[in-house]
Simulated assay, not measured.
Amino acid sequence: MQKSDFRGVFPAITTKMTSDQEVDLAAVRADVAYQIESGVDGVIVCGSLGEASSLTREEKLAIAKAAIAEAAGRKPILLTIAEDSTRAGAVLAAEAEAIGIEGLMVLPAMRYLADDREVVAHYRAIAAASGLPIIIYNNPIAYGINVTEEMLKEMADEPKFVAIKESTGDTRRINETLRALGDRYQLLTGVDDLALESLILGCSGWIAGLVVAFPRETVAIYKLAAEGRIPEAMEIYRWFLPLLSMDIGPKFVQNIKLVEAIVRGTSPVTRAPRLPLVGAEEARVRAITEAGLKSRPDLSKYGF
């Protein structure tokens, strides 16, 4: 895969925590190894699912270094830039390049709801801070800022902007973007339970959440779709959909970490203010996960 080609499956991994809510770098490395051995095309660290909002700059760099060391050049490691200020984002982007990160997934600045002009200026400043290729993360549902078609046209003159993580939750945006901008940007689906539809419509990559617990199934869906084997991809996808729904809502981090813990035995600990799921919320995640495990498809049927 070329440096600026983000085709394939890219897990946005969770940040593993110890019982006292400290980052577990050994577990981060083990997670990166597990994902790569399962066939993913790269790994994204410190994203929304990775609890970026509660990590310090020093922790993000330590996580990135651990992931790079484990990947050992086998697959690219990308870092998410989700800082409160443009200055902090630009500094982190430059530091990420210096330690060997191969790409950035960049959100608008957090907390402040910027207007279109300010968002474009933010993205341009991050791009100017390093030579790394950038995925523009568009998630207006979660972050209140919509990177519009007009903004993407305005930013198209910057070659470092290579892809868009399409997380609007509206598959019409895929066709609208492709019609307006052609192949200027790679489109990557970022909503797990719209992933297959998005791949069929023209997305060339999947930045995934539940992949952290089920990487082989996620990769199989992607590859079957790429090969035009849509009915087979649909079989796995329909099995997966109740689990993929865990990627939606304010407690998606707790949901997915609990799924991981049940499936893989990893730590479900999240950093406060996130607290463990209890009561009906926990029971629902456990029930869906256990049902999924009981009916888990045999991937050898599809050649995987």
Rank of each mutant, 00 (worst) to 15 (best):
H122Q: 07
R117C: 07
A125L: 09
M110Y: 12
R111D: 15
D115R: 13
A128D: 15
H122E: 02
A128Q: 13
N139S: 14
I136P: 01
V120I: 15
S130D: 05
I136N: 02
H122S: 00
P133S: 04
R117P: 08
A109P: 06
V120P: 14
R124H: 03
G144N: 02
I135T: 00
A142D: 13
G144P: 06
I141C: 12
R117D: 03
Y123H: 03
Y123S: 01
M110R: 15
D115W: 05
N138C: 12
I145Q: 03
A121Q: 14
G144M: 04
I126Q: 06
I145L: 09
I134E: 01
S130T: 01
Y112I: 14
A129F: 11
I145G: 03
M110P: 03
N139M: 11
L132H: 04
R124W: 03
R124M: 04
A127W: 01
L132F: 02
A129D: 09
P140K: 10
G144R: 04
L113I: 11
R111S: 14
D116G: 06
P140L: 07
N138T: 11
G131Y: 10
I136M: 14
P140N: 12
R124K: 09
I134F: 02
I136A: 05
Y143N: 15
R124G: 07
G144A: 10
A127Q: 06
D116N: 10
H122I: 01
A114I: 07
N139L: 13
M110W: 08
E118H: 08
